[in-house]
Design a protein around this nucleic acid. Structure first.
Lengths: 148, 148
DNA sequence: AGTTAATGGTTGATTTTGTAACTAACAACA
DNA sequence: TGTTGTTAGTTACAAAATCAACCATTAACT
């Protein structure tokens, strides 16, 4: 009783996207986890600060679409480990400007290198067309602006 | 001090894939969560049984790449809610054959309809080329066989 | 048969996430 | 000034995922 023609689960986009996302994240995850004890939210915050420089938790939330509690906890852990500093805004004391420490910048540069090489490796499994169209389609699905 | 040219985070495949996966899963998640109180692992198990019929937890794990503890707990919850039955194999008493109940089949058919319509909706935001190439590339990245 | 290894599946402890309620600060406006 | 509403960020508690250790059973090998 093999009735495998009922629904193409492997073609269902949310399923397919999750499978591909999980699988393609594994190797990079090993690195930021083993090398710096970071979680996914933490490398994301780290990268935002590394790329865009000094910014507030709110701004990170707007760019990354992560929930503010995730960001709050990631910032806490990164601050404990001295990867970033928190600096209260003088005019609006609700705001905290976050900035990478030297150690944070070093970790960022290191992981950025890993990410760059890993992305090249992943891209190599796809044709040029697949690479181009894939990224384009993903951006649409994530409803993100292509640059940002 | 805006130094946003350092690393194209939005082009980093694991990041992009996760963003797209999360975003594109939200709407479907609302349905299986609100309508049946299911978790992601649970609808996945339900679908596997709905599509392929009677099978064991191990077989589900091989197809879905979910960890066995996730599957074990999903099966428990689905069994409690009478969406599936567990039937011990006579020859190898370690094995349990799982099968959807009538209620489980009804839930599967309902959710499958939702999934089909949702997939059409998602596809509609992409061009035909994007749809074709996207799925093709995702299958490669997920290291899955296209049909299954 | 008896011992050891491997397998299918479960459980418990810990970590991580999600949700909602919360605090402190600011804004708007009477 | 006082009241009400927002906003940035935190915290508390429940829900869920992770990881390793664990049974029970079967397989493999002597």
């Amino acid at each position: 009783m093999t009735k495998n023609d009922e629904f193409p689960l492997q073609q269902f986009l949310p399923y397919l996207l999750n499978q591909a996302a999980e699988e393609s994240s594994l190797e990079f995850q090993q690195v930021y986890k083993n090398r710096y004890g970071m979680l996914r939210t933490e490398w994301r915050v780290l990268f935002h600060l590394g790329i865009y420089g000094r910014m507030t938790a709110k701004e990170i939330g707007e760019r990354s679409k992560m929930h503010k509690t995730k960001i709050s906890r990631a910032v806490q852990r990164l601050a404990e480990r001295r990867f970033l500093t928190r600096d209260q805004d003088e005019k609006d004391r609700r705001l905290e400007h976050l900035e990478l420490t030297t150690a944070g910048q070093a970790a960022y540069r290191d992981l950025r290198g890993v990410a760059e090489r890993y992305d090249v490796k992943l891209s190599a499994t796809l044709t040029p067309e697949e690479n181009r169209v894939l990224r384009q389609a993903l951006v649409k699905l994530a409803r993100m602006s292509p640059d940002a």
